[in-house]
Amino acid sequence: MGEFRRSEVRVPVEDDSVVSVEAGGIRWLFAFTDDAALARFAEARGETLDERVLVYGAWLLDRVIPRVGGPVGIAVDAGSATGMALPPAAGIVPDSAVAVAVPVAVEGTGVRGAGA
C-alpha cells in the first residue's frame, strides 16, 4: 500500500470523469503504472482512452474515493499479468463509510484482489 500511495499512476478520463466500472455493487476506478499498460487496456476494450491524468495513488485513495460515495476500489494495471485490485476494505480506503467488511471477489475483471 505504501508503494502505491507514493507512486504516480495514470488515470484514464472520459468526458471530464474518471473511467470506472461497477461490478457487484462496487465502483472500480482504473489506475495504470505506465502508458503501455493503459494502452493495452484501452486496446482490449476497443477504446482509445487518450485522456489521462497523472496523480499519486494517495490522491485517489484519500481525495477521490471518499467523494464518490459507496464502496469504491482501484484496479491497478487491469487486464495485465501484474494487475491487482485494491478493494474498498478497511486499511486500504481511508473512510470507513466507503469500506466493506468482507473480502471482495474480483472475478472476471482480469485483476487479482489484494488481501482478498
Results as ranks from 00 to 15, higher is better:
residue 1 M to Y: 05
residue 2 G to F: 11
residue 5 R to N: 02
residue 6 R to A: 08
residue 6 R to L: 04
residue 7 S to T: 09
residue 7 S to G: 02
residue 8 E to A: 07
residue 8 E to Y: 10
residue 9 V to N: 01
residue 9 V to A: 03
residue 9 V to W: 06
residue 12 P to A: 06
residue 12 P to F: 00
residue 17 S to N: 05
residue 17 S to I: 03
residue 18 V to E: 05
residue 18 V to M: 07
residue 19 V to A: 13
residue 20 S to H: 11
residue 21 V to L: 14
residue 21 V to S: 12
residue 24 G to N: 12
residue 24 G to I: 03
residue 26 I to R: 05
residue 27 R to H: 11
residue 27 R to I: 14
residue 32 F to K: 14
residue 36 A to M: 15
residue 37 A to G: 10
residue 38 L to H: 09
residue 40 R to P: 00
residue 42 A to N: 11
residue 42 A to M: 12
residue 42 A to F: 10
residue 43 E to Y: 05
residue 44 A to V: 04
residue 44 A to Y: 02
residue 45 R to M: 11
residue 48 T to R: 11
residue 48 T to H: 11
residue 48 T to F: 06
residue 50 D to F: 06
residue 50 D to W: 10
residue 51 E to D: 13
residue 53 V to M: 10
residue 55 V to Y: 09
residue 56 Y to I: 04
residue 58 A to I: 05
residue 58 A to C: 09
residue 61 L to Q: 04
residue 62 D to C: 02
residue 63 R to G: 04
residue 65 I to Q: 08
residue 65 I to N: 01
residue 66 P to T: 00
residue 69 G to I: 11
residue 69 G to E: 07
residue 69 G to C: 13
residue 70 G to I: 07
residue 71 P to L: 05
residue 72 V to Q: 03
residue 73 G to H: 06
residue 74 I to V: 15
residue 74 I to F: 13
residue 74 I to T: 04
residue 75 A to I: 06
residue 76 V to D: 08
residue 77 D to L: 11
residue 78 A to P: 15
residue 79 G to Q: 15
residue 79 G to V: 15
residue 82 T to I: 05
residue 83 G to Y: 14
residue 83 G to T: 12
residue 86 L to Y: 01
residue 86 L to D: 01
residue 86 L to W: 00
residue 86 L to H: 01
residue 87 P to C: 15
residue 87 P to R: 08
residue 88 P to G: 05
residue 91 G to V: 14
residue 92 I to F: 15
residue 93 V to I: 12
residue 99 A to T: 01
residue 99 A to N: 02
residue 101 A to P: 10
residue 101 A to W: 03
residue 101 A to E: 15
residue 101 A to K: 12
residue 102 V to N: 04
residue 104 V to M: 14
residue 106 V to K: 03
residue 107 E to R: 08
residue 108 G to N: 09
residue 109 T to D: 12
residue 109 T to Y: 13
residue 110 G to R: 12
residue 110 G to N: 14
residue 113 G to N: 15
residue 114 A to E: 09
residue 116 A to T: 09
